[in-house]
Amino acid sequence: MALSFPVLAADPIVGGAPMLPTKDIIDNAVNSKDHTTLVAAVKAADLVTTLKGAGPFTVFAPTNAAFAALPAGTVDTLLKPENKAKLTGVLTYHVVSGKVDSKAVVAAITAGGGKAELKTVAGGKLTATLVGKDVIVTDENGGKSKVTIADVYQSNGVIHVVDKVLLPK
């Protein structure tokens, strides 16, 4: 059975900008107009140096619309200096160690009898499943996010764009 995961050709366009595999996660993300909130949050949490590091990392990157869908005031509250630890926890909950591309995710879902558990660098767990041909990532609270763009390769990992913010317990 052929399973699909929305995959783009080399140098995909994300947020109006080409994502070059020769650049790191941060150097690409800052050019995406769809990820300005994520970039601001990464800067506020002092994670720029980490995500510019060797990795490899797999990032489930929520769009601006995903952040906007959170309850009113959530993003502003998280961006306050006194909430840096909580913000860091939310952001690192979207990161998995290693370069887990779509083939690896689908293979893990198949091997797991329909679901794959992914351990985040925050220490939490995400569960990946297939719903039709869509990969759905579920957080520990039951929140679901769809991968809308997969396999955006970076020099230090891979990004999968998601349509909802995933929240740790």
Rank of each mutant, 00 (worst) to 15 (best):
V158I: 15
V131C: 07
G113T: 10
T127M: 08
K115D: 12
V137S: 00
T148I: 10
V161E: 04
G113K: 10
V100G: 01
A150R: 06
N141I: 13
D134F: 02
D101C: 08
L126P: 09
I136H: 01
V162S: 06
K119C: 03
V158A: 05
A128G: 01
G143K: 15
L130C: 07
Q154M: 15
S155M: 03
A128C: 05
V121H: 07
D101K: 09
K103V: 05
A104L: 00
K119M: 07
G157I: 09
D134S: 09
V162C: 09
T129R: 00
G98C: 15
T138N: 07
L118D: 15
A104W: 00
K164H: 13
V106P: 01
V96H: 03
V95D: 11
K133V: 06
V105I: 14
G143M: 14
S145E: 12
G157R: 08
T127I: 11
K144V: 08
L166H: 12
T110C: 02
N156E: 04
N141D: 11
V165H: 04
N156C: 09
K125T: 14
K115T: 12
K146L: 10
V131Y: 06
T138A: 05
V137P: 03
V105C: 06
I159V: 15
E117Q: 13
K146N: 08
I149F: 03
V152L: 08
G98Q: 11
S102E: 02
K103S: 10
V135R: 11
K119D: 09
T110L: 11
K99A: 15
V131P: 00
V161H: 03
S97N: 09
V158Q: 08
